[in-house]
Design a binder for these strands. Structure first.
Lengths: 149, 149
DNA sequence: AGAATAAGGTCAACCAGGTTGTCTACCTGA
DNA sequence: TCAGGTAGACAACCTGGTTGACCTTATTCT
């Protein structure tokens, strides 16, 4: 019996590969999963580079590199923190929000195909089950997103 | 609604972190997930370095590095291929099999805790659902194990 | 208030774990 | 038999992370 993590890794990769393939047909910048997760994070809340690093599960220096790329490509911009002169808020530009919308549609398509393959209810159970496990293990502060290889 | 891949990545990491933590308390070599997956693969079938690379989803050169490490640590050894003079079979040593047994127990513990947290049946559904999806997407030839970040 | 400590951001050096490219020895099919 | 493909080793390189030092600003403690 295969360990669950193998299934998780394989499924993650399978979905990611499909996403990436379809994205490449559009011909956008070489966005990696990390970039997408940053968009999604920034949609929810105002965040600094340090926040982003923590969310991704990498150091602040690594997060800074990612933010720099997104900045260069025009997906985000930095604005001064209102009260803390050291800090900067990273915020989505219109281009960033557009990308996120596009990606969300693509994910929805992929999940739709998944639901069709394994059943709507099974997918829902997977979703709830994993979320519950994460809740159980980590409480409110979620683990990093980066899969450690 | 969070995309499923985020849940997969987070769960994979959460489980992997726990596994790694407990493993470190024992004080073994710094084995990474890839090493474990190689053990498991070698238990099933005789395999060459190229086979291993394909299974992991990396190039044969990357696989060769991993095999070298395992060889240095005494977990595997290479023996000549019976018919193909170019090739070598990589096989588990006793130490390798012992590790695998130990790791399996540890995984079983972790999955037991997971089952306790989210329910036996939910875990079973997750397992079946993911396996079915992989089957649907890739047919018999499974995708690489390495999560692409 | 002032000193010690912590935190955000940046720079630079380094490293791990991959990749691509090349070469040799061997295998296989027309 | 010979053309093309494959296993494996070696080397150069790249990417995406880490560690460590530093400056500046915040916060906490006395």
């Amino acid at each position: 019996m295969e360990p669950v993590p193998m299934l998780l890794a394989m499924t993650y990769r399978a979905m990611g590969d499909q996403f990436h393939d379809r994205l490449r047909q559009i011909g956008l910048e070489p966005l990696r999963p990390a970039h997408g997760y940053v968009f999604r994070f920034l949609k929810e809340k105002r965040a600094t580079t340090v926040d982003i690093g923590q969310h991704l599960g990498v150091t602040k220096q690594a997060a800074a590199k990612i933010v720099n790329e997104l900045d260069d490509w025009g997906y985000v911009l930095r604005e001064p923190h209102p009260t803390d002169k050291r800090a900067q808020y990273v915020t989505l530009t219109t281009k960033g929000r557009d990308y996120l919308k596009f990606a969300d549609n693509l994910w929805a398509d992929l999940e739709g195909e998944m639901a069709e393959a394994i059943g709507e209810d099974t997918l829902a159970t997977i979703r709830r089950g994993l979320a519950a496990y994460l809740q159980h293990v980590h409480g409110e502060d979620q683990p990093g997103l980066r899969p450690v290889w």
